[in-house]
Amino acid sequence: MPDPGEIELNRRALMVAAGACAALPAMGANARSQPAPVGTPVLADVSFSVNGQQHALAIDTRTTLLDALREHLHLTGTKKGCDHGQCGACTVIVDGQRINSCLTLAIMHQSASVTTIEGLGTADNLHPMQAAFVKHDGFQCGYCTPGQICSGVAMLDEIKAGIPSHVTADLTTAAAVSEAEIRERMSGNICRCGAYSNIVEAMTEVAGRQG
């Protein structure tokens, strides 16, 4: 593997690349700043809080937030289903917003506050959303479940904050909790066991309780 500094992109190749993907006009510059895939990993310091606990990591810059949680902090409640943002199993709440933790690097979260499934409640002291999932049997194999629950908790906050969705009929009034809103907003969290009907019941119940 050559040193990236030695890569010469001639103008013609660059134009072809840029033309093929207009969204990446600065591809040449980006390619130069990429670290080489071989050699000693580039480590970077990052510190953030997870479930109220502060963590300082010297971490491979390639490590996703998901792998930082699972492989470094051993918080394995957050699941890896696809590792590229297609399934939602890795959903966590970062500074109040739900995100796919597989699609973001750990080093991008300096000083962030991360909430994972372990931070919502414990097996002995469940969060209302976790308890509602048990009551309504909103899961089967359990692998998408932490992502569904973290996503659901943040999703209800989004409705409360008046953020509209694709199915919100009237953008001039605040969105209200409905089964249609829940289904639309939760569609980034796949459940292959097919517990959707029960998940919606669990979330509707929790939303009602929150009033």
Binding site: A123, Q130, V134, K135, F139
Partner: peptide
Amino acid sequence: DRVDGPLKVSGTARYAYE
């Protein structure tokens, strides 16, 4: 209710890679 429910909803059920 599932007896393993609290483990699954709290993220403490351990799967193969964990």
